[in-house]
Design a protein around this nucleic acid. Structure first.
Lengths: 349, 349
DNA sequence: CTGTTAGCGCGTTCAA
DNA sequence: TTGAACGCGCTAACAG
């Protein structure tokens, strides 16, 4: 164990001036050496670099960001629950891209309410971030208009402002899932909807479009709007719908958490309608019946957002607001390939 | 849709001087109003507040952090793979605590190599964060000695520096899991070890201690050190060990990802030794055989770390480096309660 | 009570 | 090639 100093927090970090003094040169010279070192005699540069090493000097990024006109080298990321693998994946992948360009990522604290989101965003803006990546809540985002910072919305658009947006093909994914179930012969498909307005709405549109294309009417009593987006709500709703006189033969769960709740309920009921979920999740292939899902490359969602934002922040990209849509694919694992069974055939409780 | 301005990024945000001019007061007065507004006549304060609203002024946190002696209002968080729910939980919970105190959390880009971690940390330090929360990699962290920033290590200690540390009772957890298996009558228990040095080592110690206490020898061929910490490595190792002439009757998987790999292999082999995992994970209760795990309150890990760091940063806490250890509990779900079966009884492939 | 001023650490002029 | 001086936005210390 090396020598341990008893808590010595007040060791002021050396500044450029310290380095200049140490090397016996002027401030400007140090600055030039630090940023590329053009126009400095080799010998002088050597001395400066030596002083830097000896003092353990590190450029102060905060002061640097104060420089007239320039922005900081950090991006902000505002999203919901990091505990949701979906968001965690976005965080991770955007972080990677930002890091490669020397940018840090600041996470705002994200409460549930839209008011909290606005507060968090303004906090971040006041920290002079170079750009914002936002997975927006429902509230109006017009207040970002004059923020003077480029914004990229992730996963869903926001109202009140026209900015870049990176998302997945929700409607296409909804149609894909539904087509798949219809192709197995299902005609009574329930869809469970989380209370998010945009993405879920699109998935529902895909659901309806698939039915229309197949010439089958949607039973509106099977379009189930949940009060909350968690597994518990889905579990409860699944139990209810499966205990009806005429239960569905298939279920389309519109988010990963809902899928979990559906499976939990079905496990308890001992019933086995076909199930397709939206968004893949860890262990989906290891459940008693491996789960068929519609999925997209979430990591790419985060990477695209970060790349786009970095280009906007640097001024390299001045195109009008872009709209990047990533495709969805179907991953067949078993639960979505079950054939329809009539009510009489199903196992009793 | 509201009026949309075609990309107008060069709208300089208003400064305190702008507010001062607008309100017809001095700069200092504005500053006073912004920070609490003590010692300012009500009427003047009103005018200032009005000007602030009209201009949409927001305090520049960057400039604020430049103030002599003062630190910024952001903490840094350095950790591994956010895609691992374990890390994601730490991030979320520490973020919540920090946010409640008006602190933002900056995530450093985290590559795998220890060199990358050092770079990331120095990046963060150069951003003048008020404190660092680090889930350290193996490398030496002595370079943090003179950083002049409080540091809290999370989940495992680091070498080369004596700082606060918040972790779980790894050894106790290891013993708990092993005791449980021994209590079922298992005498040949395999343990799968991820290549992380500290936590895993402690869990192994608990494993050995439990054996010693029970008066049972550890078969060293069942102490399996994996080359990597992912599910694939665990899957491979499990397959190999279960196909031996004298396979174990129980397996202790030392991390959540390893547990996953173990179960995957067992599913393919059609064998059912008892299994206990370290750290709980989503869907553990929904697998074909619900998984028994040793778990601790990971969210509390993050919260404690953030709280401790905030107190250090504010100077409110000047105690010598603390060592907070959270307890582990056993969650019995089925896989860990299977009795031992002799090799002859196990199902053929 | 309120206005003014001096830095904080750095990059960028402008001279020398 | 190098040094000195100014300003970024803000707070604290000092006058008035």
């Amino acid at each position: 164990m090396p020598e341990t100093f008893p808590t010595k927090p007040e060791v002021a970090r050396p500044t450029m001036i310290d380095v200049a003094r140490r090397a016996g040169v002027g401030l400007g010279t140090v600055s030039r050496v630090v940023n590329g070192g053009h126009g400095v005699r080799d010998e002088t540069a050597q001395r400066v670099r030596a002083a830097i090493d000896e003092l353990g000097f590190q450029r102060n990024e905060v002061a640097r960001a104060l420089r007239p006109g320039k922005k900081s080298t950090s991006l902000a990321l505002v999203l919901g629950d990091l505990t949701n693998p979906f968001y965690a994946t976005i965080a991770k992948s955007s972080l990677e891209v930002a890091g490669q360009s020397g940018f840090a990522v600041v996470l705002g604290s994200v409460d549930e309410d839209p008011e909290g989101e606005k507060r968090a965003i303004q906090e971040l803006v006041s920290r002079q971030v170079a750009g914002l990546m936002i997975v927006p809540d429902q509230g109006d985002h017009a207040f970002l208009q004059g923020a003077g910072v480029p914004v990229v919305f992730v996963d869903r658009p926001a109202t009140g402002i026209d900015a870049d947006i990176v998302m997945v093909d929700n409607e296409g994914g909804g149609k894909l899932a539904t087509d798949h179930l219809l192709a197995q012969g299902h005609e009574r498909i329930a869809i469970l909807l989380a209370p998010s307005y945009y993405t879920i709405g699109r998935r529902l549109r895909g659901f309806r479009r698939a039915h229309r294309a197949a010439g089958i009417d949607v039973d509106e009593s099977l379009v189930i709007q949940l009060p909350e987006g968690n597994a518990e709500a889905a579990e409860k709703a699944t139990r209810e719908v499966m205990l009806r006189a005429d239960p569905p033969t298939a279920i389309f769960a519109s988010t990963n958490f809902l899928t979990e709740g559906v499976l939990r309920a079905l496990g308890e009921l001992g019933q086995e309608p076909a199930v397709v979920g939206f968004d893949d999740f860890r262990l989906a292939d290891m459940l008693p019946t491996p789960v068929t899902v519609v999925a997209s490359d979430i990591a790419e969602l985060g990477r695209s957002a970060a790349r786009l934002l970095l280009d906007r922040a640097s001024g390299a990209d001045t195109r009008p607001p872009q709209r990047i849509v990533l495709p969805c694919g179907l991953i067949e694992r078993g639960s979505g390939e079950r054939p329809p069974r009539s009510a009489g055939e199903r196992n009793p409780r």
